[in-house]
Structures are given as C-alpha cells and as structure tokens.
C-alpha cells in the first residue's frame, strides 16, 4: 500500500510537469495552429536562468528565499523569451503554419546548442532548500516533499489559467480565438496581442516545469526540455488540442500509467504511454480537433 501511495504521488508529480508544459503547448496550438517545437527550449531557458540567478544570489543566506527569488527570475526570463519568439519569429509568418513550425524546430535546435555551448553538456546541480528533499510520512509511506510542491504548483496554474480564461477579457478572446480566430478579428479585436500573451503564458508555465524538474531530478541538463516535450506532445494529443482541462486529465493519466507500469513491469512505462496514445488515436482521431479552451 505504501509503495502504491508513493508511486501515485510521484506519478502526480510527473504529471504536474507534463501539465505545465502541455497547457501552454495546447493553448498555443489551439489559438494559433502552431505546433511549438520550441516549447522545450522555453523550459530549458527558464531552468537555466533559475540556476544561473541562484548562483549569483549568494548574498541571500536563506536557501529557501534564494531559491524562490531565483525561480521568479527564471520564470520571468522564460516568459520574456517566449514573448520575443512570438513577436520576432512567429508573427512575421502569420498564417503560414508549416513555416512557423519549421522556425520553432530551428529555434529548438539552436537554443539547445547554445546552452550546451555556454554551460556544457553536463548536468548542472540545482541547489534547492534541503527541506524539499526531506520526506513526509503519509500513512506508512514516506513521500519526498518536492512532490507536494510540484502538484501544488500545477494545481495553482490550472486554477489560475481556468480563472484567467473564464473571467478576463483576454481569456474570452483566447477562448473565442481557439474556436474561430478570423471571426474574432472581424469583431474589431487585434488577436495578435492574444498570440503574444499565450506565448508568454506558455513560456512561464514551461519555465516553471523546468524549475520543478530541476528540483525533482536535483539537476538540469540541456536535453531536459526536449525529453519532457515529447511526453507533453503525447499529453496534448490525448487531452485534445486546445483544451486545458483535457491536458490536466491526460497528464495525470500519462504520469500515473508511466509510474505504475514502470514499477510493476520492469520499466516499460514509457512504451506503454506510446501504446496508450496509439489506442486513443485509433479510438477517436477526432480528439485532435478539440476546440474549447
């Protein structure tokens, strides 16, 4: 039972990271029709910015506050980077979806290579507050504390995004744009501002996933973004492109399946995910047309 609980919480922790990457990916695809291969690069940029900021913030003696501050800087950098990518690279190719995808492919290759060039191929250690790696007992299971943080962060982002989409004017524009972008412009709304906004939101959420993955694995390496991105793609497809709630549910399915199958069947969890995806697609290829945010 305690093993099962540990697996479940750990699976949910993984799911949290998948969700943070997938939610932005899904919103961007839903609104703009762009399959953003650079989303992993946003994650990498945010994670490295956090690591870098932390190394420069030695003046703050409290590890916790140092880490929190560094993370905030990392999220900011990731968000700004993503917004710039939209403004400079995506916007000029408006409505040319294939070219936009190609540009994000080039960008992801270049960003990862640049990070490798500057900080090397080896993982960089994340100096996180020690309490994050202590455990809390739940019944008979000892759960590492960072799992709670990951789950809480994802829940906060989920609630925040839902509220943003539901109650703000930009949220309304994004939800409408996911359905029918052209009609939104025909109401006199400059939908491009919403494009930059979803990129920025996606960038911040991906950076948060980068920071949390740094906590989870205790380190960050240049390839982290790409490897999480693949699973996020799968999550987005299963959950329905453009649907935040769908992404959340699909992340949980993927995270838990991966953990359980890995534990009970000598590590073919990742393969089982691909199988789940294939089954979902064969059962309802229409899930890819998902529209409501």
């Amino acid at each position: 039972m305690s093993t099962f609980l540990l697996l479940t919480i750990t699976g949910l922790g993984l799911a949290a990271m998948y969700f943070l990457v997938a939610s932005g990916l899904s919103l961007i695809y839903g609104l703009m029709g762009v399959l953003n291969f650079a989303h992993g690069a946003f994650l990498t940029v945010g994670a490295y910015a956090t690591w870098f900021a932390e190394s420069k913030l030695g003046g703050i003696s409290s590890l916790t506050w140092r880490f929190v501050l560094a993370s905030l800087i990392g999220l900011l950098v990731g968000g700004i980077f993503a917004a710039l990518v939209e403004l400079v690279l995506i916007r000029p190719l408006y409505l040319r979806h294939i070219e936009q995808v190609l540009v994000t492919v080039g960008l992801s290759l270049a960003t990862v290579a640049l990070v490798q060039g500057i900080w090397g191929n080896d993982p960089r250690l994340y100096a996180v507050p020690p309490w994050l790696h202590e455990t809390t007992s739940v019944g008979s299971a000892s759960i590492p504390n960072d799992r709670w943080i990951e789950i809480a962060a994802a829940l906060l982002v989920l609630a925040g995004l839902k509220a943003f989409l539901r109650y703000t004017r930009y949220g309304l524009i994004i939800r409408a744009g996911v359905e029918n972008r052209a009609m939104v412009t025909a109401l006199g709304i400059d939908v491009r501002k919403a494009f930059t906004l979803v990129f920025a939101i996606g960038g911040v959420a991906a950076s948060l996933a980068g920071v949390l993955s740094g906590v989870y694995f205790s380190e960050v390496d240049p390839g982290r973004g790409t490897s999480l991105l693949i699973f996020a793609f799968i999550v987005v497809v299963i959950g329905g492109l453009g649907s935040i709630t769908g992404s959340a549910v699909a992340s949980v399915v993927v995270g838990l399946t991966q953990q359980y199958v890995n534990y009970y069947s000598s590590g073919i969890g990742d393969l089982s995910i691909v199988l789940v995806l294939a089954l979902v697609l064969l059962a309802r290829p229409a899930s890819l047309e998902g529209r409501t945010a």
Binding site: L172, R175, A176, E179, N180, A182, M183, T185, A186, L187, G188, I189, D190, V191, R291, T292, A293
Partner: peptide
C-alpha cells in the same frame, strides 16, 4: 481586419459564426 472593423463596420457572417463554447 480589426482596424477596418473599428472604423465602424459591423459584420453578420453567412454561417453566423457564433462562438459555440461561449
């Protein structure tokens, strides 16, 4: 488009194009 519309053009499209999820 959005600038043209803001000049005071209202549009009722052929297939209504209301936002179904809203």
């Amino acid at each position: 488009t959005h600038r043209i519309v803001l000049r005071g053009l209202g549009y009722v499209p052929e297939d209504r194009d209301v936002f179904a999820g809203l």
